[in-house]
Amino acid sequence: MSERKIRIMVAKPGLDGHDRGARILARCFRDAGFEVIYTGCHQTPEQVAATAIQEDVDLVGLSCLSGAHRVLFPRVVQLLREKNASDITVIGGGIIPEQDFQMLYDAGIKAIFTPGASLDSIVDWVRTNIHVRD
């Protein structure tokens, strides 16, 4: 019997240490039946991309509350592309002003969740949009 499980990496790139949201999300993903690789704060985009590939995740969830998302999020997408891993979906969350959304979508971020987004809506998004390869 074979069973695919969705594997999600939750990471906080950059110098921001506000990890409560990322931790809650990790737990919420676990309770939804996903396998979560929680990697904590203070990572470089290079570390995030390398870890995502080593762990063969389907989705990388980036959290940033410091305002550096405009640089860090697109860099992660770009590094995954360079490593032939553009099939790994990247989403973002945190304190992200609405005027930055389009710039992040254009850079390849597939979804953005800001404070107030319900946990259910995030889990639903994952179930609808993440399809594990055969």
Partner: peptide, 20 residues
Amino acid sequence: SPFSGGAILGDRVRMLRHAE
């Protein structure tokens, strides 16, 4: 987790300096 079938895999948090 025996309840949801999900898991939080957090051992890597201690090994970040080797990630690259």
